[in-house]
Design a protein around this nucleic acid. Structure first.
Lengths: 219, 219
DNA sequence: CTCCTTTTGTTGAAAATTCAACAGAAATTC
DNA sequence: GAATTTCTGTTGAATTTTCAACAAAAGGAG
């Protein structure tokens, strides 16, 4: 497990827990690591909401497909982020989204019950982890609000610009790359791919943005 | 404070805490009650994210206004629900939404720091409240996902039907009333009011729904 | 390197949404 | 209870998005 410590240290679940304790804690929690190839489903819609995941390497996307088959991308996940904790922490029966590896990825899985309920060793970390989960869920809540800010815009252009400005701010630079290809960006913004491409071209012609594939710059 | 106990008992923040303890706890937390008239702003966008609110009576809406002045309704709040905890728990500087009373309402305000940090009395309720906040935030997360399910639909009709089916399920009946008038429902679904009215009429003519103002029935 | 697949940008037609304006119904005020 | 304001439904025109189809570009496989 040692080789994952650089990632795990950054995981919000383990805030305030040092490396020595972490090793013991992980075995106490029964953490295990699974690997997934590109495009493989890590959690599939409808599966039991028992585990909390931590993305150790690669990247993933949270995807929702409605009964007409329309794909919607809820968010992109990068390393050291928690996955699925909203469902297991809420005590949900099953998860209503799929989580798909975007490239070869490794996930650490932990049974959520082992986090929330004290162990026989009576260790003190459960309180800390519950606090960490609380804070992480609050932050995720805010991120969902931001996602709603983007998709609540009425036009393709406004959705795109709101998203790009948000990413520029998040990444701290007017030049940045996004984790989506065109179709994925369309599925994230909830618009047509062709209309999105056309809008990007227009904004480029107008001199508002520069863009090359996944690279963008706000001018 | 006694008169609010029926509401407070149902508030997720106080799960697992009995009435005797609650009285002491509230004074320990420095809880106070404010009243607001219809249309008055309880929290305004940009104000410090210090307090957790509990709606004691009346009803409220979480509202976001963008720089063009377009109003978007994020959600409706009913009694015993927590307000603004995602921002204070995440340690946000200020809140990015407004919360507006929809009718004369009373709110209990609690400084979030007093919930999260142990008091000099060393009482045991902080752990319980942190756990409760964690669970409540997880549940809210799921509700935001559901809101995204609604607004990610591409057409007015699909948004409306997804919302109505969700409400029917939530209220456990195919007959139910919604907490929005037409303009508010449009602002919640992120569509045009006139187009929404037209769609409701069409669905009524098609025999898919019955509706009268805020009362709906799925057929 | 060549072939094959995937991704991206473009375009025009069809469909849907937004906008603006109005009239009737309902609710509120005085 | 009369007058005023707010809410709702309707309609047609303008705008935008979606859909479908294609070609060029890029990426991957063998």
């Amino acid at each position: 497990m040692k080789k994952y410590f650089n990632i795990l240290r950054k995981c919000p679940l383990f805030d305030g827990i040092n490396d020595n304790d972490l090793a013991a804690l992980l075995s106490c929690l029964g953490a295990r690591v699974n690997a997934f190839d590109k495009k493989y489903t890590i959690f599939s819609e409808g599966s039991p909401a028992r585990y909390v995941g931590i993305l150790l390497s690669g990247s993933a996307q949270i995807i929702k497909t409605d009964y007409y088959g329309n794909r919607s991308i809820v968010s992109a996940i990068s390393t050291s982020e928690l996955i699925g904790e909203e469902y297991s922490c809420a005590g949900a029966e099953s998860i209503p989204v799929s989580i798909v590896a975007n490239e070869p990825s490794e996930i650490m899985l932990i049974d959520c019950g082992r986090i929330l309920h004290s162990c026989s060793n009576n260790c003190l970390f459960h309180q800390q982890m519950i606090f960490n989960l609380m804070r992480n869920l609050a932050v995720k809540n805010i991120m969902l609000h931001k996602k709603i800010d983007v998709t609540s815009k009425r036009s393709t252009r406004e959705k795109l610009m709101t998203y790009l400005m948000m990413e520029a701010e998040r990444q701290g630079s007017s030049r940045f790359s996004i984790p989506f290809d065109r179709q994925e960006l369309a599925d994230y913004l909830e618009v047509e791919r062709s209309g999105l491409s056309a809008e990007i071209s227009k904004l480029r012609d107008m001199g508002v943005i520069k863009s090359n594939k996944k690279q963008f710059e706000l001018l």
